[in-house]
Amino acid sequence: MAERKIKVIIAKPGLDGHDRGAKVVARALVEAGMEVVYLGLQQTPDAIVRAAVEEDADVIGLSILSGAHMSNFRKVRELMESSGLGDRLLTGGGIIPTKDQEELKKLGVGKVFGPGDDLQEIVEYIRVNARRVSG
């Protein structure tokens, strides 16, 4: 039975327009054989989770460089729980201070990446931690 491709939603919640990192990561995940649904800029937590439900995504990756990471990650995680996606990985990256990374972990957010992290490390993290579905 062939393993289904890992499906990843990449989105930027809020008003922050820095999409260089999100697009580079999206491309790296595609090159690594994953399926990426790139939602782009100015997404609401609601729209992101709705897309994840429709796409039956294994992973949601948020890119946030605006400083609004705590509230956005929290809202997305809560909506994931209430939409039946509680077992899926929520990860992401951006400019996120170490102190906040610890707080995010407590909220059920996976590893968050930052400047200088290697693309391969991100790809491997998602490969290992994505909910695997064979089909």
Binding site: R20, K23, V24, R27, A28, D118, L119, Q120
Partner: peptide, 14 residues
């Protein structure tokens, strides 16, 4: 073009 340049730069660093 912009994303390609960003990706290639990141790969060059890697």
């Amino acid at each position: 073009e912009i994303t390609r340049a960003a990706y290639e730069y990141q790969m060059a660093l890697s």
